[in-house]
């Protein structure tokens, strides 16, 4: 397990988001929107690509209309790629929980890279409000004892 800073990786509830995909299915009764096919999400400097993204809107607290624009959480899968100003992360599946501001990216091989520094493990967890990122190794049976591969290139540390 090792920690890193992942500033900028953030999908927030109060910033505009642009989403593009081949198909979108909106289930109004379940407050659900499913984007499938070349899903492309842009919010500020953060770009995310995935095969499928499911957006769960906040159940209509108060009147039915207040909640529907706020996103409760979103799930992405089918080869996820996320790029912020300084870092790139890739994995198989990801979830953004807007309430707890936690983003997790999991899969066979989760890679978090900043410039030429690379962290490889099985799970990346980012506290979106602080930017603190944590990569867990592929411990067998989900134990966190697994190994994380980290390579840091000295010259890239210069400010």
């Amino acid at each position: 397990q090792s920690d890193a800073k992942m500033t900028g990786l953030k999908l927030s509830n109060d910033q505009p988001i642009q989403i593009e995909s081949d198909k979108l299915e909106v289930q109004q009764e379940q407050n659900l929107a499913i984007f499938t096919g070349n899903v492309n999400v842009v919010q500020g400097a953060t770009l995310m690509k995935a095969g499928k993204m499911t957006v769960y809107y906040v159940k209509g607290g108060g009147s039915a209309t207040t909640g529907s624009a706020n996103i409760d959480h979103l799930e992405v899968d089918g080869k996820v790629y996320i790029k912020t100003e300084t870092q790139v992360a890739t994995g198989d599946r990801g979830t953004f929980d807007m309430k707890s501001q936690v983003f997790t990216l999991s899969g066979q091989k989760v890679v978090l890279s900043e410039g030429s520094n690379v962290l490889v493990g099985c799970k990346l967890t980012v506290q979106m409000n602080t930017g603190l990122a944590q990569v867990d190794g592929c411990g067998s049976g989900g134990g966190s004892g697994g190994r994380v591969m980290m390579s840091i290139t000295p010259d890239s540390q210069k400010p």
């Binding site: 509830n13 109060d14 910033q15 505009p16 988001i17 642009q18 989403i19 593009e20 995909s21 081949d22 198909k23 979108l24 299915e25 909106v26 289930q27 109004q28 009764e29 929107a33 984007f35 009147s63 209309t65 207040t66 529907s68 624009a69 706020n70 996103i71």
Partner: peptide, 29 residues
């Protein structure tokens, strides 16, 4: 009209702030 399916070049722009200000200002929908 409860289930909507959009296909071919779907583009969605969500601006939660716009939605909130509309409600925030208490303007009845």
């Amino acid at each position: 009209g409860k289930t909507l399916v959009f296909e071919k070049r779907v583009r969605v722009d969500i601006d939660p702030a716009a939605a909130k200000t509309k409600e925030g200002s208490g303007e009845a929908n």
